[in-house]
Amino acid sequence: MSNTGDGYLRRLVRRLTSDVAELDADDLSEMSQASGARRACDCKCGEQAEVLGRLRCVGMVPKASVPTLEAELYDGTEGVTLVWLGRRKITGIDPGRTIKARGRIADRDGHKVLYNPYYELQNTA
């Protein structure tokens, strides 16, 4: 069998034996790289980054002084928390939605964060 056939067979066996979450993570990672975005696992604190992924959860965090909308973006490799200060809701920022976000990566308690990121809602049709 040729190398091309071996690669196809290997991918087919992996697809048949992997769980759905693992396959979804692979698809998200491939979609992110194809869009030109960086993988979240490769982003470092202080760097400008553009990431693409699916929003896992979205919620308003009441603070004493300023309400904050937070969303966890997952690109198949790692999560990045998106934080919009002073916002309670943003139309289109909903769980399950795919978005591209960019800004400077920060660290909050060991997790990657983008504060007030620029974002684009993505069509997933």
Rank of each mutant, 00 (worst) to 15 (best):
G92R: 07
K63P: 04
E50Y: 00
R88S: 11
L16A: 14
P67E: 07
P117I: 06
A125F: 07
P67H: 11
Q33K: 14
Q122G: 05
K89P: 03
A101K: 04
T81F: 01
C57W: 12
C43A: 15
R108V: 03
H111A: 12
V58F: 09
G59H: 08
V58Y: 07
R14G: 04
N123D: 13
I90S: 06
L52V: 03
L9W: 08
V58H: 08
E30A: 13
G7H: 13
K89R: 09
V80P: 00
R102T: 04
M60F: 08
A40W: 02
R11K: 15
T68F: 03
T4K: 09
A25N: 11
D26K: 05
K63Q: 15
T4I: 13
M31W: 13
G46P: 01
E70Q: 10
G36P: 09
A71S: 12
G86N: 12
T4F: 11
A37P: 02
D6V: 12
Q33G: 03
S29G: 03
D42I: 00
A71N: 06
P95F: 10
A49Q: 04
T91V: 12
D94N: 12
G76Q: 05
R15G: 15
G92H: 11
Y115W: 07
G110Q: 00
V51C: 05
